[in-house]
């Protein structure tokens, strides 16, 4: 495992911790898209079924369990927690995420490494992860003002993707048989979706002002 991959995993972990911190400390999930969180839970459940079939390392297995558990916990809090669920911006979070699920499933049935149950689910999870942030970005755009922790959450999620791209470039040059083009193409799409957000994030950081997205 190279440094970029490790930094990618760590920024991913930090983003989840920031989200949990926000929900725990403020007892609020305003500005957070439940649809995006549900998609992530689905992504992790579909991809990490290989916990039962393939063992790579203790690190990998622990991270997989952490990602599944934390994403389910977040969804549970937003839907069921007596206090937290009241702050959910339901009327702003109207992205029709079922279409994303259907489109990604169709694509996974057409394009995958091998037509087996686990491989289709794996490709599905990769495609879905690439677009899972869309409901969140739409929600932020609609609400205009982005609170500090929510902004940091999305920033770290984007940083995770950027580090993964560096990781693939590194692997491409250092490993002889590294070819995982489904991940790489999807990863590039996913990172590109953050470009706009990053632009406004850096502007607000440079001007030391509150993060605001144009309507």
């Amino acid at each position: 495992m190279n440094i970029f991959r490790f930094l990618g995993d760590m920024t991913h972990l930090i983003s989840i911790l920031i989200l949990l911190l926000k929900i725990y400390a403020t007892k609020s999930c305003s500005g957070i898209s439940l649809k995006t969180q549900e998609l992530y839970a689905l992504v992790f459940l579909a991809r990490y079924l290989d916990l039962f079939t393939d063992f790579i390392s203790v690190y990998n297995s622990v991270m997989k369990v952490v990602f599944i558990a934390s994403s389910l916990a977040i969804v549970w809090c937003m839907r069921r927690h007596r206090v937290v669920r009241r702050s959910y911006d339901k009327e702003l979070d109207t992205f029709r995420h079922y279409f994303l699920v259907a489109a990604c499933l169709a694509l996974a049935l057409l394009v995958q490494e091998k037509f087996t149950f686990l491989e289709v689910l794996w490709a599905f999870s990769i495609y879905l992860e690439a677009v899972a942030i869309l409901p969140q970005l739409v929600l932020l755009q609609r609400s205009g003002n982005v609170d500090n922790l929510t902004g940091q959450y999305v920033f770290f999620l984007g940083a995770y993707r950027a580090f993964y791209i560096l990781n693939w470039i590194y692997r491409y040059f250092t490993e002889t048989h590294f070819s995982r083009w489904i991940s790489c193409v999807s990863g590039l799409v996913q990172t590109a979706l953050y470009a706009d957000f990053f632009y406004y994030y850096f502007i607000s950081w440079k001007n030391n002002s509150k993060l605001q997205l144009p309507a």
Partner: peptide, 10 residues
């Protein structure tokens, strides 16, 4: 048929 590399990323 080339064996696909293991899925070692998260």
């Amino acid at each position: 048929q080339v064996q696909a590399p293991p899925k070692d990323e998260l």
